[in-house]
Design a protein around this nucleic acid. Structure first.
Length: 619
DNA sequence: CTAGGGTTAG
């Protein structure tokens, strides 16, 4: 009778405990437990410990440990709760010390114990210890066939980067569930092997929302946005429920596609779901990124403003959005607004802020932020931040300063750092510095064709044709093929029209050519002269003029002028960097037509209006 | 108790 009452009391307590969210609430329940002589109940104390350790600011070695040590004969679950708490804090040493004590007292383990230990090993990337625990699961009867133990073991091996071991566990498991499959699918997706991920997914007998989302996100993360959308459609046809995580993958895929058609499509789906950007930071932040990558930074800001809750992702995405659109002042303003909130800037925030400064030529401000980011905001500069600084200084013409910064930086310069210097050397026509930067880049990124092209263009601008052909020869030896330049324009109906350089295959090419010729005539009246330096071949000036007129972004512009509503913004996307001559033409076109033109090249967005570009002719 | 998650520079 007494035992029954006790059981009822225990279970009531546990349900009260699960609703506790503050330390004071927990302490009150604890006092009650103590008064009712329940402080020896492993069951109740285990629950108490679990709730307590979800509070981040409570150190385990104080209150939780005290609770534990007051129980004379802790059962395996109570031991495990404490082990798990240390494991979650990343204290692998303490977790294993406790496991040792537990074994010495001849208690347990239970499957949860192994889960906690595997999670500790995974967090610490300690595969050696993980393998020892693996061995224990075999030695201590029964656990090697436990589904849950095996699932956590797979996860541990995956976190340690030992996919073959994880696969072996998976292949030898007597019983698998959708969790086991999904763990492995994600592991393959993370290393970029979507082929194996897809094979596993096909074999998976019962697919749930998480497994589907893993595929959608896997394709999105591996730059296969079309595939991601395809899987999302399949998932919806299957009648599978979607949630915020699924949505984020699709939104990121739409961001990569950069087309308004997809942006509007997923906006409506998200808007009619339970996960609207106003109430959901995850979806909201993803939409901010998507809109800015689709060229619509105004809409990105609308989403930002409409969000009830914001976090570091929302702010960083918005700051980066402003930065790539050349709205440096807005980016800075938002950064200072952010500093007034509780939200702390992180390394990405600073990349955004420094990029904004760099694109706007705000050298002093950028240098000041760079100098104080660690001291004032606790974010230590990484090589990426040094790349921003090399870009900031170099772009502004301080090539030597940029070079000196690189040579004195505390870590090994990466490709972005030398790439920034190379880009700056190209802008300022300094083949000698370009040569130095390239030497490093050819070692760091031997297959990145952009570096070879930029170097050869810098030589060409300086008239060093021998060096140009030397670089060309190098590219030939490495069998590097130049990507064909192309641009695209999204028509009102969402159909995308692609134009390659020198393209004559578009059905309306005659009209397009005529439109372009007309535009050129009008530009000449305001003083346009073809920028022959934009062609880095040693050919006649006439031939250069002809080639300039075949650039894909000019064809897309002419098509856009023909096929868009008067007064609307013309949006052009390009896979390579926009050339100087096309940039001049875009400026002029915005002036003579009175249209707003937005060009997204592979680096950033250019907003042309009234004859000027948001980048300040500075890119 | 175990599986899916967003922002990054040249």
């Amino acid at each position: 009778m007494i035992n029954l009452q006790r059981k009822v009391l225990e279970s009531e307590l546990v349900s009260i405990l699960q609703g506790c969210t503050t330390l004071n609430q927990i302490k009150r329940v604890h006092a009650f437990i103590y008064r009712n002589n329940l402080n020896q109940s492993s069951y109740v104390i285990t629950k108490l410990l679990r709730v307590l350790t979800t509070l981040r600011h409570v150190p385990i070695h104080t209150y939780p440990l005290l609770l534990f040590s007051q129980v004379h004969n802790p059962n395996p679950f109570l031991w495990t709760a404490l082990i798990r708490a240390y494991a979650h804090k990343g204290d692998i040493f303490e977790a294993f010390r406790l496991y040792g004590s537990m074994r010495m007292k001849c208690t347990g383990p239970v499957s949860f114990t192994f889960s906690a230990l595997f999670s500790a090993c995974g967090a610490a990337r300690d595969a050696r210890l993980g393998a020892q625990v693996h061995a224990q699961t075999i030695l201590i009867g029964g656990f090697a066939s436990d589904l849950y133990v095996n699932n956590t073991m797979i996860d541990m091996y995956v976190k340690c980067g030992l996919l073959p071991c994880a696969r072996k566990v998976f292949d030898e498991m007597p019983e698998r569930d959708v969790v086991s499959w999904t763990s492995l699918i994600v592991a393959y997706a993370k290393i970029g092997d979507m082929g194996s991920a897809g094979e596993l997914f096909d074999e998976l007998p019962v697919k749930d929302m998480v497994a589907w989302s893993a595929m959608v996100n896997g394709y999105a993360q591996n730059a296969m946005p079309k595939k991601a959308l395809e899987f999302f459609e399949l998932l919806r046809n299957e009648g599978v429920e979607i949630d915020e995580v699924t949505l984020v993958g699709v939104i990121s895929a739409c961001a990569q596609l950069g087309a308004s058609k997809y942006a509007n499509w997923i906006r409506d789906i998200a808007g009619s779901s339970r996960f609207r950007s106003e109430n959901n930071v995850l979806v909201g932040s993803a939409l901010i990124d998507m809109y800015s990558k689709c060229g619509n930074v105004e809409e990105a800001y609308n989403v930002f403003k409409g969000m009830k809750e914001r976090n570091v992702f929302s702010y960083s995405s918005m700051i980066v959005g402003f930065a790539i659109h050349g709205s440096a002042n807005e980016a800075m303003k938002l950064f200072y607004e952010m500093l007034k909130t509780e939200i702390k800037p992180n390394h990405v925030t600073f990349v955004g802020v420094l990029t904004a400064c760099s694109h706007a030529g705000m050298v002093d401000q950028g240098q000041q932020i760079f100098a104080t980011m660690e001291k004032c905001y606790g974010v230590a500069p990484t090589a990426d931040h040094y790349a921003c600084m090399a870009d900031l200084l170099g772009r502004a013409g301080h090539l030597e300063k940029a070079h000196r910064l690189i040579e004195t930086m505390p870590m090994k310069p990466n490709g972005a750092v030398w790439g920034a210097l190379l880009g700056a050397s190209h802008i300022h026509g300094n083949p000698d510095v370009a040569e130095t930067a390239s030497k490093h880049l050819f070692e760091l990124e031997p297959d990145n064709i952009g570096n070879y092209l930029l170097l050869s263009k810098t030589y060409a601008s300086a008239g060093r044709w021998d060096d140009v052909s030397r670089v060309r020869k190098l590219m030939k030896e490495k069998r590097l093929k130049k990507n064909p330049g192309y641009s695209w324009f999204e028509a009102k109906n969402g159909i995308i029209h692609e134009f390659f350089a020198g393209d004559v295959t578009h059905p309306e090419i005659t009209e397009i050519k005529k439109e372009l010729d007309d535009l050129m005539e009008r530009l000449k009246t305001i003083g346009y002269l073809p920028n022959l330096c934009s062609v880095s071949y040693d050919i006649s000036d006439n031939e250069k003029r002809r080639i300039l007129m075949t650039h894909s972004e000019k064809l897309a512009l002419a098509f856009g002028l023909l096929r868009s509503d008067a007064g609307s913004t013309i949006k052009i996307m390009k896979n390579l960097r926009i050339c100087e001559d096309c940039h001049i033409v875009m400026c002029g076109a915005s002036k003579v037509t009175g249209r707003k033109i937005v060009v997204r090249d592979n680096m950033r967005f250019h907003h042309f209006l009234h004859g000027a570009c948001s980048c300040g002719n500075f890119w």
